[in-house]
Design a binder for these strands. Structure first.
Length: 429
RNA sequence: GGAAGGGUGGCUGAGUGGUUAAAGGCACUCGACUCGAAAUCGAGAGUAGGGUCAAACCUACCGUGGGUUCGAAUCCCACCCCUUCCGCCA
């Protein structure tokens, strides 16, 4: 969430920076300012009363010890109780209201973020490789999967429902090979050209509400989450949630930064109201695998870390010989908590379209403030960390791109060189 | 799921309803002593909110939330977490 002190100090600047986003946030900012002023007023009154009571109560203690009569002074302070109770309820309510309001206000876009109203205004920053030239009409991954029995949508629908799949035989092995290849790539010792250096995490797949509030999925996007109400737990929509929250409510040492984590998890999303759900094969499903990259760093480093995070995700696509492009999200298309985001889109010839396989974002201190994630700076002061994350990469769509880009005229699929040790064969079919 | 025990600062560990402004110890920071260090001595040091140019200062925080009381770490209630044992279980 945004810093209330900053909103109080420069409300017009905050409003101006939020103006680039979808929706009008002016009223929301005014509401939080009004609430903040009422809250502080009530809080000051309450504290004044508490101070008086503490002083008098201490006097009573001293007098009793001295054997003096205290009935008069006790009667005097007895009346404090009701006023304090009322003021306490008032401040608690205002405090809750203020937090709720702040949780509902998105992050301010970074100054460098291109201004625009929707995805059409997202600039393409660069591309790698080129669309492969086929001497035949390239097939969709659905046809290729059916030909080689790589996955089974019908039976997955029978046992779970639509928009689920079941990988089978070599298809399941390919999925597993990709997971291992991605994790190995990100966790190997870091080098400037090859990336790496992330610590592998295998987190819980069910998380509590506090964790989801920390990374902004709650309270605003509750309808996208699978929920187990009896236990107060939610299925993770992305490893970002458990991994970023590892250090929630912690004060880290500056020397620990940056922390770089990678995690493979399945991701569960209700996709309520989403177009194309269950009709485009592996492209949009309720459950998909993903290898996530998460960084927690010093504020001065977050922009540089965003560049290297994106580069680390790109290396995967390069290693697999897949053409992709980098899109920067404009202010109107930016995610709720993000201040700057790059999307990586891989070419899928069977779809004739680019597919988003990674979204790399710098959240600055927005998530850190929500989860009280701080570090002690060189002056011994607590500062909020900056957090980042990006897919490295989403598996299902990478799988689509792999099949569709490396398909051969005879319908077989060539496995890219770096993946062969993991898959155990040079091709499928 | 059942039973018992326990949750106090960075760690450890006291704490009969009223100088708890949380003892003592360890670790830490600064200073003194020293050529330097160790030892010793002295001082300081938590988090959050309010307040201030900055301070001073005020308030809250002893697992969490309620309650009793003029006053709660301390008494009462509910819940959460940890440990051990039993049950169940990959």
């Amino acid at each position: 969430m945004l810093d209330i002190a900053l909103i109080r100090k420069t409300p017009d600047e905050i409003k101006a920076r939020l103006a680039g986003r979808a929706g009008d946030w002016t009223a929301q900012i005014d509401a939080v300012l009004r609430c903040d002023s009422q809250r502080r007023q009530a809080e000051t009154k309450l504290q004044q009363l508490q101070a008086d009571r503490n002083r008098i109560s201490k006097e009573i203690g001293a007098k009793k010890k001295a054997g003096e009569d205290t009935s008069e002074i006790e009667a005097q302070v007895r009346g404090f109780g009701e006023d304090m109770k009322r003021l306490n309820e008032e401040t608690t309510a205002l405090d809750t209201e203020q937090r709720d309001l702040l949780l509902g206000i998105p992050n301010v876009p970074h100054e460098q973020c291109p201004v625009g109203t929707d995805a059409a205004a997202n600039p393409e920053l660069r591309a790698w490789g080129a669309k492969p030239a086929f001497t035949f009409q390239p097939k969709s991954h659905l046809d290729l999967g059916a030909k080689h029995s790589l996955f089974d949508f019908d039976r997955a629908t029978k046992i779970a429902g639509p928009a689920f799949t079941c990988y089978t035989g070599p298809g399941a092995r390919l999925e597993r090979a990709l997971v291992n290849f991605l994790l190995d790539t990100h966790t190997r010792p870091h080098t400037q050209t090859q990336g790496g250096g992330y610590t592998e995490i295998a987190p819980p797949l069910l998380v509590n509400a506090e964790a989801l509030i920390g990374t902004t999925q709650l309270p605003k996007f509750a309808d996208q989450l699978y929920h187990c109400p009896e236990d107060g737990l939610y299925l993770v929509p992305t490893a970002e949630v458990p991994v970023t929250n590892l250090h929630r409510d912690e004060i880290l040492k500056m020397e620990q930064l940056p922390l770089r984590y990678t995690a493979y998890t399945p991701c569960f999303r209700r996709e309520a109201g989403a177009a194309g759900l269950g009709t485009r094969g592996l492209i949009r499903m309720h459950q998909f695998d993903k290898v996530e990259l998460v960084k927690i760093c010093h504020p001065s480093q977050s922009m540089a870390e965003l560049e290297s995070l994106t580069a680390d995700a790109e290396k995967i696509l390069q290693a697999l010989g897949l053409h992709y492009r980098i899109i920067e999200l404009c202010t109107g298309d930016l995610g709720f908590g993000s201040t700057k985001t790059y999307d990586i889109e891989v070419w899928a010839p069977g779809q004739g379209a680019y597919l988003e396989v990674s979204s790399c974002s710098n959240f600055a201190d927005y998530q850190a403030r929500r989860m009280a994630l701080r570090f002690k700076d060189e002056h011994g002061k607590n500062q909020f960390c900056h957090t980042l994350n990006g897919s490295g990469t989403a598996l299902a769509r990478l799988y689509v791109a792999l099949l569709e880009n490396h398909q051969q005229p005879d319908g077989s699929i060539t496995i890219p060189e770096p993946l062969r040790p993991y898959f155990g064969a040079e091709k499928i079919g």
